[in-house]
Design a binder for these strands. Structure first.
Lengths: 154, 154
DNA sequence: AGAATCCCGACTATCTCGATAGGGTATTAG
DNA sequence: CTAATACCCTATCGAGATAGTCGGGATTCT
């Protein structure tokens, strides 16, 4: 049930973008500096985020990436799905990209006990990730930063 | 957040073993026939399950594998962990195999907002998988099999 | 024009997954 | 005792994903 580094990185990046007032565009260069991710790899991640319409880009000298929605309306689940695919542990339990099991193994989805279980797991995961917005994460960030008199900590 | 086929298979296998009265040993040959998994691959899975002490084996002519505990005391979580590792999406959020993030990326686990989130996800997953026993699954299986006048369906 | 920036495809190691293969060891039936 | 039945163990392999890296092209601003 692992998260890939892409998913983890993307979440960090979007957190970073969520704390930008403005909004004004942030360049890959700046994002790399702020997160410690290599520029080239970060660039790839940004392309995926853009094709998922989570960010939009502006080209040219003062270009960069901007959230395409306000952090209040952007959930962690969307970002993870854009990077790592469906949240469900098995395709047969996915709500956003459902694929049934091969028929010879699972003759009926309705009657499949395991699918019911994977569905419970999927719902548990989605319950957390789809209900957590980046506004909420930014809020938590401010709380811990304030409490610890804190330096940058992502 | 994917389950591997090993995890899926192992769950099916243990479900199968949970419905064996006795208990008496079931051979790899029989398990393969009942689940449709190739014998050789199934054998490997059984070795892992044995080294995790989820099943024990008996060698010789009437040998095979037996659950080492009653299905009431065996959770799906244990089986998944034995096959696919920790349930947590990130090692820093694992309770059974905790590994901190590199310090340059995450100076303090206490203050890490993302770790908090991954921990929520981990707890959501574990809440389902550690609370579901194979006795419970076998019960559900009987319920749907009865309701549909049912044939073998795993 | 030139600098900063995004855009895009190719490339490369490394790993894991899913499986197959082949032989070794214990137990028991006959 | 021996053959059959089973588990035990290690090695190997192809395909695909992961985690990056690299080089250059296109766009925009100064």
């Amino acid at each position: 049930m692992k998260l890939t580094s892409r998913g983890d990185y993307a979440t960090r990046i979007i957190m970073e973008l969520s704390t930008v007032e403005g909004p004004y565009p942030v360049s890959v260069h700046d994002l790399a500096a702020r997160t410690g991710i290599s520029m080239k790899y970060l660039e790839q991640i940004m392309l995926r985020l853009r094709s998922a319409q989570i960010v939009r880009s502006e080209r040219g000298v003062h270009g960069g990436y901007i959230l395409s929605r306000r952090p209040e309306r952007l959930s962690v689940g969307e970002v993870i799905r854009a990077m790592d695919g469906p949240l469900a542990p098995s395709p047969c339990a996915s709500q956003t990209a459902h694929v049934p099991c091969p028929a010879y193994r699972c003759p009926s989805e309705q009657g499949c006990v395991l699918r019911g279980l994977w569905l419970d797991v999927r719902n548990a995961i989605a319950g957390v990730l789809d209900e957590t917005t980046f506004a909420e994460l930014a809020e938590r960030q401010r709380a811990v930063a304030g409490a610890s008199g804190g330096r940058y900590m992502i």
